[in-house]
Simulated assay, not measured.
Amino acid sequence: MSTTARIAVVTGGSRGIGRAVVSRLAAAGQDVAVVYGSRRKEAQAAADEAEAAGVRGIALQADVADEVSVAGVFDEVQRRLGPVDVVVNAAGVMALRPTGELEMAELDRLLRTNVRGTFVVAREAVRRIRAGGAVVAFSTTVTRTHLPSYGAYAASKAAVEALVPILAKEFAGRDVTVNAVAPGPTATELFREGKTQELIDRIAGAAPMNRLGTPEDIAEAVAFLAGPGRWVNGQVVFVNGGIA
């Protein structure tokens, strides 16, 4: 399936995995709206790179957990680019702390962005996306590996996994797929923050391929689900190099 002339909205597109997704979709011929929270300069750079790849790219600010803000982004995308075909919700936050030490403010922040934000973006996708489209959400491999200190984060992503197959069924008859990717340890700024090199090496060694994933590894899976992967629907795809 050609992805030419498709229009994608990518939240969290200013850095890390989201930035790699923007680049990969642009390389596939999709026009891209890069949605960012606070990193305007990085988001504009991602949009400029999309333009350099021969497609249209725009950068738009939004709080993904604010329904008015997100609706405004979709309005602007439709006005400047056209009807939306692909929605990739890569925006997310992480806080790692044992449950007994977890601050409720941290939990509230996680749930607001990772759960409420997913529902807000999904709701707008239901209202806007056209036939032949795709929705790609983000979970995490930690919903299966159950690592200590990841309880709040993994719980927020488990909510995403619960939504995906239900949303896929709610799109019945509209030729729209809904899936999630669940990355394993990926070499991003967010992942490396607060970790020693020894710990990073130990985590990398847990994968049969003896390395961390790259943002480009994850973006390749997203591009498949956002383009030619039309018979994959209602699934959580674990993109983790074989970590059990």
Rank of each mutant, 00 (worst) to 15 (best):
A204H: 05
A204P: 12
A204N: 13
A206K: 15
A206P: 00
A206L: 10
A206Y: 11
A206C: 04
A207P: 08
A207W: 14
A207N: 14
A207K: 14
A207L: 11
P208N: 10
P208I: 06
P208W: 13
P208Y: 14
P208S: 03
P208T: 13
P208L: 10
P208A: 11
M209A: 13
M209W: 15
M209C: 13
M209K: 15
M209Y: 14
N210L: 11
R211S: 05
R211G: 00
R211V: 04
R211T: 02
R211L: 06
R211E: 05
L212R: 08
L212H: 11
L212G: 09
L212M: 07
G213L: 02
G213M: 01
G213C: 01
T214Q: 14
T214N: 06
T214P: 05
T214D: 08
P215D: 04
P215A: 04
P215S: 05
P215N: 05
P215C: 09
P215F: 00
P215K: 01
E216G: 11
E216W: 00
E216I: 10
E216D: 15
D217E: 07
D217R: 01
D217P: 07
D217I: 02
D217H: 01
I218N: 00
I218C: 01
I218M: 03
I218L: 03
I218Y: 00
I218D: 02
A219Y: 04
A219H: 09
A219V: 08
A219E: 10
E220P: 01
E220K: 10
A221P: 07
A221F: 09
A221K: 00
A221Q: 11
A221S: 14
A221N: 09
A221R: 03
A221T: 12
V222L: 04
V222F: 02
V222K: 08
V222G: 07
V222N: 13
V222S: 06
V222T: 11
A223D: 12
A223E: 15
F224I: 08
F224S: 01
F224P: 04
F224V: 09
F224H: 07
L225R: 06
L225T: 12
L225E: 10
A226V: 04
A226S: 14
A226T: 05
A226K: 02
A226E: 07
G227E: 08
G227C: 08
P228D: 11
P228F: 00
P228W: 00
G229E: 11
G229H: 07
G229D: 13
G229M: 09
G229V: 08
G229Y: 09
R230E: 03
R230K: 14
R230T: 15
W231E: 06
W231I: 01
W231H: 13
V232Q: 04
V232D: 06
V232C: 04
V232M: 08
N233V: 07
N233I: 07
N233G: 03
G234K: 02
G234F: 08
G234I: 10
G234P: 09
G234D: 06
Q235F: 05
Q235H: 10
Q235D: 14
Q235T: 15
V236K: 03
V236L: 04
V236E: 10
V237F: 03
V237L: 14
V237Y: 01
